[in-house]
């Protein structure tokens, strides 16, 4: 009994090693390896030319007094905390409108999903620059209604909002996930609630939200992680500066500037690790809070 089982395991080990060989190489060289290397480099001063030099906690000290880093954190947190809830609310709202049996459902779903595919492209960022520019499309349309616009992108008070709008615009991907989730809720729950005289709002709060909560949670975790990594749009819209007045200086953009404009690789590695810790903390917090509101049927 024992011997053949062991024999088979041995055989699989060899095959598994071969099948996983590319993945192992990727893990050491491209993913997990660099994570460890980043941690080590984070405690050095390194400019790519001279060998890295250990400088203890110097990078951490620098972070504490780095005004631009603090600004980048403020910008990124505002972006994440405003755009993700708005985006998910839009996604859920639309998913509920596109309910079962709606004629043209596939068409609507495609139309609302399309921006998710386009949204991360440089081309759309170029478009955004025009649309929200001083003489852009938005102000032209506002002009038709006699409303005077402003340079939305050149004004530090509104520049970030244009990027938030862009993220909300890509609500199609979470919407498709919500749609799939809504399909799983048995219609009879709503029918029974309607018979008992429950209003639409009560049905939403008592049936839809609890039964959909694992999906809401999943989308929340995913979109927060995603939003922390936003880069392209801020880079193109601000011409790589994060301006005006650092108002669109996303964390990733600052990291890029330190690492690849200044070749300040040690500090950039420390910044990378801080980002990893922040994302991990947000995700852990999400899971912790989830215990209070996410409802698992089984």
């Amino acid at each position: 009994m024992n011997a053949p089982a062991q024999l088979r395991r041995k055989r699989d080990n060899k095959a598994a090693f071969l099948f996983l060989l590319p993945w192992f190489a990727g893990l050491t060289l491209v993913t997990a390896g660099p994570v460890v290397a980043s941690l080590v480099l984070g405690f050095t001063d390194y400019n790519l030319i001279q060998a890295p030099e250990f400088n203890g906690l110097e990078n951490v000290r620098r972070m504490l007094s780095d005004e631009r880093l603090h600004q980048a954190l403020r910008v990124t947190f505002s972006y994440v905390c405003v755009s993700v809830p708005l985006q998910l609310a839009a996604a859920l709202g639309l998913a509920m409108l596109l309910d079962r049996g709606l004629r043209g459902l596939a068409f609507y779903r495609s139309a609302f999903y399309l921006p998710s595919l386009l949204g991360s492209s440089v081309a759309i960022a170029v478009l955004w620059r025009q649309v929200f520019g001083a003489e852009g499309l938005l102000n032209q349309v506002l002009g038709l209604f006699g409303v005077e616009g402003r340079g939305w992108i050149s004004d530090p008070r509104t520049a970030l909002s244009t990027l938030i709008v862009l993220n909300v615009w890509t609500f199609g991907a979470p919407m498709v996930i919500f749609l799939a989730g809504l399909r799983q809720i048995p219609v009879m729950y709503y029918e029974a609630a309607a018979v008992d005289g429950a209003s639409r709002w009560t049905q939403f709060r008592r049936i839809t939200v609890p039964l959909l909560s694992p999906i809401i949670f999943f989308n929340l975790v995913l979109q927060i992680i995603h939003a922390f990594q936003a880069f392209t749009q801020a880079f193109v819209v601000s011409g790589g500066t994060g301006g005006p007045s650092d108002s669109t200086l996303f964390y990733t953009l600052y990291l890029y500037q330190r690492g690849f404009n200044n070749f300040d690789m040690g500090y950039a590695s420390a910044l990378a690790w801080l980002l990893l810790l922040i994302i991990a903390a947000f995700t852990a917090l999400n899971f912790w809070v989830a215990k209070r509101w996410v409802f698992y049927d089984d």
Binding site: V30, P34, Q229, L255, S269, A272, L276
Partner: peptide, 12 residues
């Protein structure tokens, strides 16, 4: 879930 930004420096 590993962001590319975290590994880009050593990768580079």
């Amino acid at each position: 879930m590993l962001p590319i930004h975290v590994i880009i420096v050593p990768q580079y």
